[in-house]
Each structure stands twice: as C-alpha cells, then as structure tokens.
C-alpha cells in the first residue's frame, strides 16, 4: 500500500527561512501570506521562488477584503494574479471579511484587519460577486476562510455554515475552515460548552455543504486579553481545538492542514511538531478510508 500523501504544512515565516532551507523537512506544503510576496524584485520573492522548487505553496491572502460592499482594489487583484502566475500555487485563499469602505474626503480606505460581515443575502451577493471576479481573473477557484469575529451583526439570514455552503454552491469557491477561529468565536460568545458549539458548527457544515467544499484547514493558538479572546496565532494549538479538528476529520475526511504561528514565533522544531501531529491524525483517517474501500 503506498504511503498516504503528506497533508500537513506550516506557515513559513522570515525568522525560520535559514533553518528551514537547511532542514528541508517533509511537509505536504508551505503557506505564506500573498501580500508579502507581491513585489517580484525583492529578496523575499527570491526566497519563495526557491522554496517553491521543493514544496507546493499555498498562497494565503489577508488584504483582498472579499466582503467589501464597495468592491475590490483592482491593483491588489492584479498583483495577486501576477504572483499566482509566478508561483503556480497549490491553493489560493483569503478571508470572508471586509476591510475597504469609503471614508469621507479620503475616499476608500483599508482598515488593515479582517472586519466582520453580516450573514445576510446582500452580504452573500457582495461576497459572491467579488469572489467570482477574482476567480475569473485567476482562472481558478479560491478558498474563503471563516473569521474570528470580535463583533457580530444582529441581522442574519443564514447560519455561518449555511452561508459558506451557499457561497460555495453559487461561486464555486471552497472553504478554508479555520477550526481555531470557530473556537475563539465560541469562547467570545461565552458558549456554555465551546467545544460542543464548534463540533455542532462543523457537523452542520458537513450536512449543508457540497462535497469537497473544505479545501484546507487552519489550526492555531490564541490568547486572552482583557476578557476578549484574540486570535493572535501566538501559542500551541489548544487541546480543545485538536479535539474539534478530530471531529472535523471525522465529518469531512482527510484535509490539507496548516499550523499558523505568527506572534511569539517558536523554534522551527516546535512548529513542525504541531504540524506532524496534524499530519498523523490525517494519515490515520487516510488509512481508515483505504481499509474501508
């Protein structure tokens, strides 16, 4: 029986470049933030081009602001398209958020963060139009990630899983399922049993979504600040999030999985250890699936 493909990856961050290059660890993919590599002439782009020779690269955007009612920044879309042409990524993703809006005399401004959208029909229309525009430009589907949101709007025509299922059906995009974001939201909503709330979310998605909707999973750590749980990717993945991840694999089957770590970066070996744990859980599901067939 052939070894199952590696499904786990890490977010490659600058302080790890040198060690990563020396080690070349076995990984299914590496992920980077697209915007950090928009400039084809700088040193970072040379690094990414070299890494791409050894690994599939997943491009994870933070700035498209796909949910913005005022539309997308053409310059941003073009730079992404050029990066995609250079790197030929295995996946391309961004978030189900807005960030751009008109602001007085200044015109359209960008908040530099992932701001929440309302789960309404109108929001879905906006998101669909923007996602389709990017997909048309890139000639390939996007993955759109669920947010950790610090504010929520009362108007709501869909549950969040229904919203992403509908988005996928209409635009042809996939979902980048961030399990940690679900858990952060459950904690911030003061759910009596946050793990159960997250597992319920995932089960609902599995019921509602077209098969194969989830193209990638993100796992990360969070921290608490002044009563609010902040998704700062600063720690080990919480044990409850691992449990929810196992539930997700049970519901969805094996999915490429990324460990995101951005703040208080650990040593590369700690990061790889987290990724290997995800990889082992995926591999176990792959073997089960093979044995069953």
């Amino acid at each position: 029986m052939p070894a199952p493909p590696l499904l786990h990856g890490i977010g490659l961050r600058q302080p790890h470049y040198r060690e990563f290059r020396a080690l070349r660890p076995p990984l299914g993919f590496v992920e980077v933030h697209s915007e950090n590599f928009f400039n084809p002439h700088d040193a970072a782009s040379q690094v990414l081009a070299a890494v791409r020779k050894d690994y599939p690269v997943s491009l994870h955007g933070v700035g498209l602001a796909l949910g913005s009612a005022c539309g997308l920044d053409e310059h941003h879309v073009r730079q992404l398209a050029e990066l995609v042409a250079r790197i030929d990524p295995v996946r391309i993703s961004d978030h189900a958020c807005f960030a751009r809006a008109p602001w007085g005399q200044r015109g359209i401004v960008h908040a530099g963060d992932l701001l929440p959208i309302a789960y309404t029909h109108a929001s879905l229309d906006i998101l669909c139009a923007n996602v389709e525009r990017v997909q048309d430009r890139l000639g390939r589907p996007l993955l759109v990630e669920n947010l950790s949101a610090y504010l929520d709007f009362p108007e709501r025509d869909f549950s969040e899983p229904q919203f992403f299922a509908e988005l996928g059906r209409r635009s042809g995009c996939g979902l980048l399922l961030d399990v940690n974001n679900l858990y952060v939201n459950a904690l911030n909503a003061a759910e009596p049993d946050p793990l159960q709330a997250v597992c319920g979310w995932i089960s609902e998605l599995a019921r509602e979504a077209p098969p194969g909707l989830v193209g990638e999973i993100h796992l990360a750590g969070f921290s608490e600040q002044q009563g609010l749980i902040i998704d700062d990717h600063s720690r080990l993945v919480a044990e409850a999030v691992w449990q929810a991840y196992v539930h997700a694999l049970d519901c969805l089957g094996p999915v490429s999985t990324l460990i995101e770590w951005d703040e208080h970066l650990p040593t590369l070996s700690v990061l790889l250890g987290q990724a290997e744990r995800a990889g082992a859980l995926c591999a176990a599901r792959c073997e089960t699936a093979q044995a069953a067939s």
């Binding site: 600058q14 994870h60 700035g63 950790s148 600040q225 600063s234």
Partner: peptide, 18 residues
C-alpha cells in the same frame, strides 16, 4: 539589514489590543 525581507502581513490579531 534587509528591510525588504520583513513579514509585513499577517492575518493574526495583535497582542496589544487596547
């Protein structure tokens, strides 16, 4: 030394919210 290598972008939250 090499400012162009800075990781400017991330999708994380900040650790100093207030």
């Amino acid at each position: 030394h090499c400012a162009a290598l800075s990781d400017l972008h991330g999708c994380k939250g900040s650790s100093k919210v207030n």
